[in-house]
Computed example of a mutant assay.
Amino acid sequence: MTSAIAVAGLRKSYGDHAVLDGVDLDVPRGTVLALLGSNGAGKTTVVRILSTLLRADGGTATVNGFDVAGQPEQVRGSISLTGQFAAVDQVLTGRENLVLMARLRHLDDAGRVAGDLLTRFDLTDAADRRVATYSGGMRRRLDIAMSLVGDPPVLFLDEPTTGLDPQSRTAVWATVRELAGSGTTVLLTTQYLDEAEQLADRIAILHRGRIIVEGTLAELRRLLPPATVEHVEKQSTLEEVFLAVVGSGGQAGR
């Protein structure tokens, strides 16, 4: 199978309000697809249906070859989901959160799995502190680390960098690139257009309940008139200035 996620005619309404009105989507294996749309466009609804947290009113959807409605257990065994808010236990330490997730996935050597992810996300120094003492950026990094326990073939990231400082955001971007490079399929929803430009192999725009355009960034750019050449002085962005001043290493949030 070439498609990790295949959606056809997906519909969902809340009362008289149709949130999804025939969504069609195809995500090839090992690619990153960015799902864009304004607030209330239905991006999170799509993710919730695909991750079996919400039942569609109509249409079909498969994830990793399994039907979302008919084979929910197999779908859940194939995915991980990182929502808009960090879902970590603040009473436990960072290490304990990861060990718990590894045991829930019935993995051998949960301690080693936790240690590897703590190192990967630059959380080793804070591993044995309660998560309640973590900054927002550290909690988000831990949340994404937990979603990678067990190396799921499909990962849903629902606005994963909302509220993060530039350094933590850059670290998340690096992780997504690494995942895609290793063959993980990622469906990413985001409000940040530059994030989609940086990470996505393909981009889909959801508007009024439908995917109105989908393609690579180059393909989408061809929808506009040809660019005109102008000679202007390029100024550094504020984010570039910030990272140059404080450094772009993984020390954010400490």
Results as ranks from 00 to 15, higher is better:
residue 152 P to R: 04
residue 75 V to T: 12
residue 48 R to S: 13
residue 233 E to Y: 06
residue 236 S to M: 12
residue 81 L to F: 14
residue 128 D to I: 06
residue 146 M to F: 03
residue 24 D to Y: 09
residue 198 Q to L: 05
residue 42 G to Q: 13
residue 42 G to W: 07
residue 158 D to Y: 05
residue 27 V to I: 15
residue 7 V to E: 09
residue 39 N to M: 10
residue 8 A to Q: 15
residue 71 Q to H: 15
residue 249 G to I: 03
residue 3 S to M: 14
residue 121 F to M: 11
residue 92 L to H: 06
residue 76 R to Q: 10
residue 94 G to F: 09
residue 118 L to P: 10
residue 154 V to Y: 02
residue 127 A to M: 05
residue 28 P to S: 08
residue 217 L to G: 04
residue 48 R to K: 15
residue 114 A to L: 07
residue 117 L to Y: 02
residue 81 L to P: 03
residue 120 R to P: 07
residue 248 S to A: 15
residue 56 A to T: 09
residue 3 S to Y: 06
residue 45 T to P: 05
residue 162 T to L: 09
residue 96 E to R: 11
residue 13 S to P: 00
residue 146 M to P: 00
residue 107 L to K: 04
residue 212 I to P: 00
residue 133 T to H: 11
residue 108 D to C: 04
residue 141 R to Y: 07
residue 1 M to V: 01
residue 9 G to E: 15
residue 110 A to W: 09
residue 138 M to P: 01
residue 240 E to T: 09
residue 16 D to M: 05
residue 113 V to L: 05
residue 171 A to Q: 09
residue 137 G to M: 11
residue 94 G to T: 08
residue 105 R to D: 06
residue 186 V to F: 09
residue 111 G to Y: 00
residue 116 D to I: 08
residue 99 V to K: 01
residue 102 A to K: 03
residue 175 T to S: 12
residue 202 R to W: 00
residue 45 T to K: 07
residue 248 S to P: 01
residue 186 V to D: 07
residue 159 E to T: 08
residue 113 V to Y: 01
residue 252 A to G: 13
residue 26 D to H: 04
residue 69 A to H: 11
residue 98 L to K: 11
residue 96 E to W: 03
residue 247 G to T: 13
residue 118 L to E: 12
residue 129 R to L: 14
residue 164 L to V: 11
residue 75 V to H: 11
residue 104 L to R: 01
residue 204 A to T: 08
residue 148 L to D: 01
residue 236 S to D: 10
residue 163 G to F: 04
residue 133 T to V: 06
residue 213 V to R: 11
residue 43 K to W: 13
residue 39 N to F: 10
residue 245 V to M: 14
residue 225 P to A: 13
residue 204 A to L: 10
residue 13 S to C: 06
residue 193 L to D: 14
residue 61 A to G: 07
residue 183 G to P: 04
residue 139 R to T: 04
residue 49 I to G: 10
residue 217 L to H: 09
residue 71 Q to A: 15
residue 70 G to Q: 14
residue 78 S to F: 08
residue 68 V to K: 07
residue 218 A to W: 02
residue 160 P to H: 03
residue 149 V to S: 09
residue 96 E to K: 10
residue 127 A to C: 08
residue 206 L to F: 11
residue 243 L to A: 11
residue 185 T to E: 07
residue 220 L to K: 08
residue 174 A to E: 14
residue 154 V to E: 02
residue 31 T to H: 06
residue 68 V to C: 09
residue 225 P to M: 10
residue 24 D to P: 09
